[in-house]
Simulated assay, not measured.
Amino acid sequence: MSRLGLLTWGMRHFVKPHLARASTPAHIRAEFTRAAGLFRAPPFLLHLPGKGPLPLDQISVGQVSGDRVILYFHGGAYIAGSPATHAALLGRLSKLTGLRVIAPAYRLAPEHPAPAAFEDACTAHQMLLDQGYAPDQIILGGESAGGGLALALLADLCARGVPPAAVFALSPWTDLALTGESLTRNADADPLFPVARIEETAGFAAGGLDRCDPRISPLYASFVAPPPVLIQVGTSEIIYDDSRRMADVLRQAGGDVTLSEWPDVPHVWQMFDGYIPQARQALCEVADFLKQQLTSPSRQRPDES
């Protein structure tokens, strides 16, 4: 059995049943924090925790660019996760891209339901502008709920005429209205998520907000001249259709979208770099995408030409 096969077997027989039995968001949050110790960080990772009402953690490996930055939103279904739980993944992204990663510790549901996370995303972006970054020096990224949050922020920034340089979203959750056919089609195939719990989770995340509100479901947002976007997703995920339909929405808005579909991988397999080769391959695809966007003549700033 391949390393990927072993990973998905373990998820299907141990993690998925455990998630199906998890009693509360606090329980899931604690389990996520414990599990994060299994993710392999690259050597020489520098993690500087942020301070203040909205902490912005800084994560880097080695020498990084001083004039470009990744603003990254962690996943965890809006109820779990933190920059610390994702430090290993973000360190690997930093190493491969040569960029510093800024990860906001945005507020979590159910204590802080939507639109709290979106408001924090907007604040984090403004904080980078206040530090002197131009809009086109900022790249948005995120995975799962964080990928949806990055795309929700993208719609807002495009509407305000300050789009980022590019966006990458890993298995993004873009439709909290739960209308994707893959929720039923992939219910058995998905090795990680028990579909029976997603309605409850969406309720925690949305609170009293309409689940089609673009601040939490960017599938229903309007995009004005979006920058290039890379979306990676596993074809067996229950939220596979969130990525497929999101790509269509962005293309209809005139966006240059790369939808990268991977068979047989679990949700956010990129976090398992160091365990399965598919994770490294996916992260290298992200790095190559960003390099292409940042070195494109149309993306170069006047002082770089």
Rank of each mutant, 00 (worst) to 15 (best):
T295Q: 14
A105P: 09
G180C: 14
A150Y: 02
V195L: 02
G75M: 01
H18V: 11
P42V: 07
L183W: 05
P43D: 13
A134N: 08
G91S: 11
A177W: 07
L153Y: 04
L96F: 07
H18S: 15
L89S: 05
D273W: 10
P104R: 11
H125K: 06
A22G: 13
P25N: 03
F118A: 06
S65T: 14
L219K: 04
Q270V: 11
T179S: 11
V233D: 01
F193M: 14
A22L: 15
Y275Q: 12
E285T: 12
L19N: 06
P172V: 04
R100D: 12
T24Y: 05
R107M: 12
F32R: 12
L157Y: 05
G132F: 00
V15R: 00
I238C: 01
L170N: 09
A36R: 03
P214Q: 03
S182T: 11
L170K: 09
F39D: 09
G208R: 11
E199Y: 10
T295D: 13
Y240L: 08
R299S: 15
M1W: 15
G203Y: 00
T123N: 14
G208C: 12
A145V: 09
L6P: 08
A35N: 07
H27S: 09
G75C: 02
G141F: 00
V233N: 07
P277A: 01
D264S: 15
H86Q: 12
I216M: 04
L129S: 09
I231Y: 00
T295F: 13
S23K: 15
E200Q: 15
Q281T: 11
A88I: 04
R92M: 13
P55D: 07
E181R: 13
P110K: 09
L108Y: 02
G91L: 11
I239F: 09
L7G: 02
H267Y: 13
A103R: 03
A145G: 04
A117E: 03
K16H: 02
D242C: 01
L93H: 03
Y133S: 04
H47Y: 12
F39A: 06
D156G: 12
I216C: 01
A196P: 06
K291R: 15
E181Y: 14
D175W: 03
H125R: 10
R40N: 10
Y106N: 05
A205P: 00
D264W: 10
T179W: 03
E237Y: 06
S82F: 00
S94V: 13
K291M: 14
L170V: 11
A279M: 01
P218F: 02
Q232C: 05
S217T: 07
S260E: 14
K291D: 15
L183G: 09
V233H: 00
A221D: 11
S144H: 05
H125Y: 11
L151M: 02
F118P: 04
T33P: 05
L140E: 02
V64M: 06
F14M: 12
T235A: 08
P227S: 12
L230N: 02
S144N: 03
A117G: 08
A206E: 01
R160K: 14
P53Y: 06
V233Q: 04
V268C: 12
A155S: 14
I59E: 02
L7P: 00
I102A: 04
T123L: 15
L192G: 01
P115V: 04
H86S: 13
L170A: 03
E261A: 09
E143N: 10
R160C: 12
R12C: 12
P228E: 05
T24R: 07
S94M: 10
P191M: 03
L140V: 07
A159S: 13
